[in-house]
């Protein structure tokens, strides 16, 4: 569609993925992962795959974040590697 917007979304996608990998605080990493999912959903919607974008937005940016935070709250909040 508009290639500038698509390029900016791709940039944010890669940036949020790198941020999610490099963060030590797992809750913050989950927040970055949520941004990643939302950018992926926006890109999929721009490429015409609205079906996949709906699923990605509801599951990736919605429910998996809640499930990840629930899983993190039963273990250590900071990664130790």
């Amino acid at each position: 569609m508009v290639w500038e917007i698509e390029l900016a979304l791709f940039g944010l996608l890669v940036l949020s993925a790198v941020v999610a990998l490099s963060l030590r605080d797992l809750i913050a990493a989950v927040a970055a992962l949520s941004v990643y999912s939302f950018m992926a959903a926006a890109l999929l919607a721009m490429m015409g795959a609205v079906d996949v974008a709906l699923t990605e937005a509801a599951l990736g940016a919605g429910i998996t974040v809640v499930l990840f935070i629930g899983a993190i709250s039963v273990m250590h909040r900071r990664s130790v590697d």
Binding site: D51, A58, L59
Partner: peptide, 17 residues
Amino acid sequence: SPGGGFQAGAIVAAGLV
């Protein structure tokens, strides 16, 4: 139109959660 059972289930589950 775009949508269907899986998408609707995910959206409603997100609302209930």
